[in-house]
Design a protein around this nucleic acid. Structure first.
Lengths: 131, 131
DNA sequence: CCGGATCCACCAGGATACTG
DNA sequence: CAGTATCCTGGTGGATCCGG
């Protein structure tokens, strides 16, 4: 997806799953994906450990999210033939670089959160004044 | 939200709407929000013009998204008392800085999209081989 | 211990019609 | 032109049970 002076009605395929930017945004958009990857930066972790650490995520969604991230090559799944079976998840190099991309964004968020909250207060005050 | 060696069960409030990072991610996650802001970088634009340019967005969702972005102070709404009424939307300075944050991300996406697609192919090949 | 399969509740979003 | 209101549906996620 080009970010320069391309007429906006000609942006190629923002509606397509093929649009790289859209894909990455969707991945980041995922409520748990990034959190999971950040958690894995600390080292290989097992399923139930993740389930305990990432408070609030359901069994099902954890499973789904892990599979999606594995499919994208952002983490790997390692099975050990113990009894009962042991499964470890590890972030990949690709996943680590994606995590690295988050820092500027976090920085922006922390810097401007005040502006946003202030704008929201103003907006709410105005709208409820007219209500 | 700290990104350093904080034990993950102590990350303060990822589940709270107050978490700046979560808030910004949610905004970026929005399928149309960023696209809309990028469109507005070209200059003030009217409602129906946006509706035409941003193909695929519904009337309702465009309205909702604009209102949300206005509430966050990322764009402003200007009403002109013509007949019929004219309304222009303009991106704010805050909105522009957020747009600026997207470029590294887009760059990452374009750089690594090949890796991701390859990983997906591998994964799909393996899983359907076992099916 | 690690999940998959199933059932269900909820709501974001599309289509449409209506106001100022 | 610029929205708001209403109805409706499809998909997401929670809860639970079951199998490897």
């Amino acid at each position: 997806m080009k970010m320069e002076r391309v007429p906006f009605d000609q942006i190629p395929n923002v509606f397509s799953d093929q649009c790289p930017t859209r894909m990455v945004l969707d991945r980041i958009a995922d409520k748990w994906a990034i959190l999971l990857l950040l958690r894995l930066l600390d080292g290989p972790t097992r399923f139930n450990q993740l389930h305990r650490d990432i408070r609030g995520i359901s069994h099902k969604v954890l499973s789904q999210t892990l599979k999606k991230l594995e499919r994208d090559g952002l983490l790997t799944r390692h099975v050990f033939a113990t009894v009962p079976v042991t499964v470890e998840y590890r972030v990949t190099t690709l996943g680590e670089t994606l995590c690295g991309m988050m820092y500027p964004l976090v920085n922006w968020a922390e810097t401007h959160i005040g502006d946003i909250l202030a704008a929201q207060s103003d907006f709410d005050a105005k709208t409820e004044a007219s209500a």
